[in-house]
Amino acid sequence: MAMNPAPPLLEVSGLCVGRGTQRILDGVDLRIDGGEIIALLGANGAGKTTLARCVAGLMRPVAGSVWLDGARVDSMHPSSRRALGMAVNHWLLPLELSGHECVQLFARAQGQPGHAPAAAPLLLSLGLDASRLAQPLGCYSLGMRQKLGLALGMLGSPRLLVLDESLSGLDAVSLAAAEALLRARCAQGAAVLLATHALEHAARFADRLLLLHAGRVAGAWRRDELTVLAGQGHDLLQVLGAATAIQAASGGAG
């Protein structure tokens, strides 16, 4: 007897956001299995942030559904909240708090001990030691705020981590540290959804790349497919640009 395939960690079905013909998302379908890093690519206004916010339960779609780890996200079931982490954008961090106070605040909000001892190795691996955490966030550089926001999203070891342009502003050493952390989490069965306009981040991190255009998924590539294209001398930006142009010419179907 054939065994039923394991259900995906994340399943997005027919997701629509917007009214009438003004659709930001127009019937998006997406499946992510544990262990995967998925990159969402697209121009500004393509719907990357909207999709990320719907997945995180921060925006309610007009149609469609989002299921995470067996629970419907838009119902904000406690199990779906525990299963999800979203990196905090640097402009949303409370600059009057110290890094340590910020970690305490977010840990308590997640029902963890206020001192969050499990966060110490995570923070240290991103270059945020005790001396850094004692400083107010207003003194942090953009890169330091990005690293703290990433760490806050990873508190509690969520099954799915959503990153919305969360790697921009990181130097090469910090980017490598972030990649190692994300890969380690995925090796334990977690998954990452990375929304970005930076192809270099997507090509470096992702197992699969999805191109959003006109509110729909216009193209999808596995990492090995991109490696073959690059090995043949193809410019990956041109590949993605051509897919966008073809999609636009066909009226946005796909």
Rank of each mutant, 00 (worst) to 15 (best):
L199R: 01
Q135M: 09
G14W: 01
D33W: 01
D235A: 09
S98R: 14
G70N: 10
V55C: 08
Q110L: 12
L175S: 06
A245Q: 14
D129W: 01
P5M: 05
D26F: 04
T49F: 05
Q22S: 10
S75C: 11
L194R: 00
E36N: 04
A119Y: 08
A191K: 06
L175R: 14
V73C: 02
L84K: 03
T196I: 03
D224T: 11
L128F: 04
P94W: 11
G254Y: 15
Q188H: 14
V66T: 07
D164E: 07
C16T: 11
L92H: 13
M1A: 11
E96F: 11
G34M: 05
G252L: 04
G189A: 06
L209V: 13
K147C: 13
L194A: 02
L161D: 10
G85W: 05
A109Y: 06
L155T: 10
A249S: 14
S13A: 13
D26P: 01
T21F: 01
S98M: 05
M154Q: 14
C54E: 10
E96V: 15
R208A: 08
L148E: 12
V73S: 02
L160D: 07
H201D: 09
V239H: 02
N4P: 14
A87R: 01
R23H: 02
A119Q: 11
V239T: 14
M3V: 13
A230G: 13
V12P: 02
P8S: 05
E11S: 13
L123R: 05
H115L: 06
T244D: 05
A118D: 12
D224R: 15
A198I: 11
G114I: 13
R145I: 03
L9N: 04
G35D: 03
S75V: 09
G35Y: 05
V73E: 07
M59S: 13
W67S: 10
W67F: 04
R31L: 04
G64R: 09
A184P: 01
Q22H: 12
H201G: 00
A177S: 14
Q22L: 11
R145V: 06
A253E: 12
I38P: 00
K48C: 08
S168A: 14
V55D: 03
M144P: 00
P78T: 09
C54N: 12
L181C: 01
E11D: 12
E165S: 04
V66C: 07
S141L: 01
N44V: 03
M76G: 06
G64P: 15
G149D: 02
A248N: 08
T21K: 13
A56V: 05
R183C: 06
A6G: 06
G219E: 13
Q112F: 10
